[in-house]
């Protein structure tokens, strides 16, 4: 049984191997962009709103409220990155109801890529918020002795991000496949429903953790704490 869709290569040219992960990722990307286009092609300010506009406005509003709670008032700066993380993982996991579909998030390469994006986004946002000095300073706070722990923490949290998402989605696919072989009818449907729930939870966890890492590195939460203390 194939664990990852990376192993199924659809097209190959030299070192360029288009596997199922990339293929389904493109499909998910096209679907998301198409839905976004549907939602925004006829935007109106006054009711009645279109169904797609309603859905995406609700999703965007929800993401903005979470970002405001976790990071602070600079919502629009973080929304594209965190929102795209959530939407991509969420759509990828939602489509498991389609037969023969293999979620790209079930590939360690994909989850690692997303974790790496978070890994690079955290210092980028931190430097943008408080400069290079501010970014580097948080490694030696509250004591320079914490420097190794901070560096180790950066790598481990990237690893946990990647492995958590991959493990959740891959295990769900594995269990569903195994149960399909043993009990071909009713139980796989239930497992698919669990899979949908777990996929949405994982999308939420991944995006929220990324927001927390960014907030932690950018020092916005410390600023908020100081503001509250003052």
């Amino acid at each position: 049984m194939e664990i990852s869709p990376d192993t199924t290569v659809v097209w190959s040219w030299g070192f360029v191997n288009i596997n199922l992960t990339i293929l389904f990722t493109w499909g998910v990307m096209v679907l998301i962009v198409f839905c976004a286009w549907l939602a925004t092609r006829k935007l109106t300010m006054h009711p009645p709103l279109s169904r797609w506009q309603n859905i995406f406005e609700a999703v965007v509003t929800l993401m903005r409220s979470h970002i405001r709670e976790i990071i602070g008032p600079q919502i629009n700066r973080y929304l594209p990155f965190l929102g795209t993380l959530f939407l991509f993982i969420s759509f990828s996991n939602l489509l498991i109801v389609i037969p023969e579909y293999r979620p790209p998030t079930g590939s360690l390469s994909t989850t690692t890529a997303l974790a790496l994006c978070v890994f690079f986004a955290v210092p980028a946002y931190s430097i943008a918020a408080q400069g290079v000095g501010g970014f580097l300073r948080h490694y030696i706070e509250p004591s320079p002795l914490m420097l190794p722990m901070h560096i180790l923490g950066d790598f481990t949290r990237t690893l946990t991000l990647a492995v958590r998402l991959f493990g959740s989605i891959m295990s769900e696919s594995m269990i569903a496949g195994a149960l399909l072989a043993v009990v071909p009818f009713f139980l796989p449907v239930v497992m698919k429903m669990f899979g949908l729930l777990i996929g949405q939870i994982q999308a939420y966890i991944f995006a929220v953790l990324a927001a927390i890492y960014i907030a932690s590195a950018a020092g916005t939460h410390r600023t908020q704490d100081k503001t509250l203390t003052n």
């Binding site: 191997n17 990722t25 976004a36 993380l85 360690l108 994909t110 790496l116």
Partner: peptide
């Protein structure tokens, strides 16, 4: 981890972010 897939997914994510 397939390195090509890894980089491709990074690029895909960035492209998706820009498109969205």
């Amino acid at each position: 981890i397939d390195l090509f897939t890894l980089f491709a997914q990074i690029v895909n994510f960035v492209v998706l972010m820009l498109l969205l």
